[in-house]
Simulated scan of single mutants.
Amino acid sequence: MRNVRKHAQAGRSATTRGASAPGVAGDNSDGGYNAGIAVFSYIVGGIIVWSLIGWGLDYLWGTRWIVLAGALLGAVGGFYLSHMHGLTSSRKNADERHAPSAPSQDGKDSAK
């Protein structure tokens, strides 16, 4: 016999949790390690891709500085992507969602 309640809860949690980035667990079972690897890959991948684009433009235009600008742009872009996917925030609410960064509605600080 199947336990219908257990099966329904498993299906609901699988559809509602949703991973915030590829390769990152939505239930945060080992999210610290996976999030760190995702942030690292976004930043290093951005540096590599944009450095290659800058290198190609340097080759075409006969300059030397665009590769450095591309590396900087790739690092900033990788950090931006990881921030937008919620991988760089360590603040959590009790229900394991990211804490809001805006002030509360009544204007009072909720920090204790």
Rank of each mutant, 00 (worst) to 15 (best):
P103H: 05
W61M: 07
I53K: 03
S20F: 02
V39W: 04
A111N: 13
R12L: 09
D30T: 13
L52S: 04
I47D: 03
A111S: 15
S51M: 05
H85Q: 11
R91W: 12
F40N: 12
V44F: 11
Q9I: 12
Y80R: 08
S89K: 05
G45K: 01
G26R: 06
N34W: 13
R64P: 00
G56M: 00
S104E: 12
D27R: 10
H98W: 07
S51F: 01
R12T: 11
G36N: 07
N34R: 15
F40K: 08
D109F: 07
F79H: 09
G70S: 06
A75D: 01
S89G: 05
A111G: 10
I47S: 02
K108C: 03
I53L: 13
R2E: 04
D58K: 03
F40C: 09
L57M: 14
K92Y: 15
G36D: 06
D109R: 10
A99C: 07
G107Y: 03
G23E: 02
F40H: 13
Q105V: 09
Y80E: 05
R97E: 15
S104F: 06
G32W: 00
A75F: 07
P100L: 02
V76F: 11
A10F: 08
S41H: 06
E96N: 15
L60A: 14
T15D: 08
V44Q: 05
A75Q: 01
I53P: 02
G45R: 03
Q9V: 10
P103D: 05
A25R: 10
S41P: 01
P22G: 12
L73P: 01
A99G: 06
R17I: 10
A75W: 07
D30H: 15
A94F: 15
S29M: 09
D58G: 04
R64V: 06
W65C: 03
W55G: 04
P103G: 05
N34F: 13
A8W: 11
I48K: 01
F79C: 14
I53V: 15
W50F: 14
G11P: 00
A21Q: 02
K112P: 15
I66A: 01
D109L: 11
G23P: 00
A19K: 14
S20Y: 06
I43V: 15
G86Y: 06
L87N: 01
G26F: 08
L87T: 02
P103I: 01
R64W: 09
Q9T: 11
A75K: 01
A102G: 12
A14F: 11
I37F: 13
H85V: 03
H98C: 06
N3C: 06
E96R: 15
N28R: 12
V76W: 05
S82D: 06
F40T: 07
R64H: 08
A8F: 14
P100F: 04
L81F: 13
Y59T: 07
S13R: 10
G78L: 00
V67D: 01
A102N: 14
L81S: 08
Y59C: 04
T15Y: 10
N28W: 11
Y80V: 09
G23N: 02
D30G: 15
Q9F: 14
P22R: 05
I53M: 09
S104I: 03
N93G: 09
G62I: 00
T63G: 08
G36E: 02
S51P: 00
S89D: 12
I66C: 01
W50A: 03
P100K: 07
P103N: 05
V24W: 02
R97I: 04
M84G: 10
T16I: 08
A38T: 07
Q9N: 10
L57T: 13
R91G: 05
